[in-house]
């Protein structure tokens, strides 16, 4: 697969709607990591009023607010993403993007909303406060420790067809069974922001490997240094017991807390 004619196309789905937490960086990371290796690649930003490209090599979705999540799922119900997943194209989804790939999630009003049904999972609400803080997991797909930052009120239950992406070492993740994210066929999902693929280059290369095969090594000095720093920060916080201490402003009560 080394001599592809066309550039590898990374479709960044609705960045203005599903990009609240810097997750657009995931597409940049994927594209640049191919270019660093001399492989032609481009990010194709797909806006909410545009059709999803049928022939992209990899699809990326990020986090967003409740109303954005509902709007995004209504546009993605046209079957284009389902078709891409069925032909085995990798899809990487974070937070709200993860939730809409499932069977169902909760709207801001608390109503159950149908998802795209591409991952065997459902999302309701965490019982406690919103999960906000560093999230550290051990991956189940052989890419080592995964580090990032989570910020969500959703609790995701995996069904039998979905495997978790990681086992939680610190933080909340899915909020069930001590795991984070999901892997189902070519779909990979997580609650990790950071962005996830910037802080976890092995996960980025795992996704790219599904498209272009074996990859030459690259220098990841910056990411390695940052990872060591974050691992140490999680350890320090755990030792001093201040980890769950947070001065978090909470909005006045309404019909229900946010889900994404």
């Amino acid at each position: 697969m080394a001599s592809r004619g066309d550039p590898v196309r990374i479709a960044l789905i609705y960045p203005a709607v599903l990009g609240t937490y810097g997750d657009g960086g995931n597409a940049l990371v994927l594209t640049e990591r191919l270019r660093w290796r001399g492989i032609d690649a481009e990010t194709v930003a797909v806006e909410i009023d545009q059709p999803l490209p049928a022939q992209a090599d990899l699809y990326v979705l990020g986090g967003g607010e409740d109303s954005a999540q509902t709007l995004a799922v209504s546009r993605l119900s046209d079957g284009a993403l389902k078709a891409a997943a069925e032909r085995g194209a990798p899809v990487f989804a974070v937070c709200a993007g993860f939730q809409i790939l499932g069977e169902s999630f909760l709207e801001g009003t608390g109503a159950v909303h149908a998802g795209l049904g591409l991952i065997d999972c459902t999302t309701d609400r965490l019982e406690g406060p919103r999960a906000v803080g560093e999230l550290l997991t051990n991956s189940t797909i052989g890419v080592g420790a995964l580090t990032g930052y989570e910020n969500h009120g959703g609790r995701t239950n995996l069904g039998p067809s979905a495997e978790p992406l990681g086992v939680v070492r610190d933080g909340v993740g899915n909020g069930t069974l001590g795991v984070d994210g999901a892997v189902q066929g070519s779909l990979v999902a997580t609650y990790l922001h950071g962005p996830a693929l910037a802080r976890n280059p092995t996960l980025a290369d795992h996704l790219l490997g599904m498209v272009v095969g074996t990859l030459a090594p690259v220098d990841d000095a910056e990411a390695d240094e940052l990872r060591q720093e974050r691992f140490a920060a999680v350890q320090t916080a755990r030792r001093t017991g201040r980890w769950r201490w947070r001065r978090q402003w909470r909005p006045p009560a309404r019909s229900g807390p946010p889900t994404s």
Partner: peptide, 17 residues
């Protein structure tokens, strides 16, 4: 616009209050 999302979670919610 988005700022300190660890504290405020949603921008629209601020507009609402």
């Amino acid at each position: 616009s988005r700022d300190q999302l660890d504290r405020y979670a949603e921008v629209r919610r601020l507009a609402e209050i």
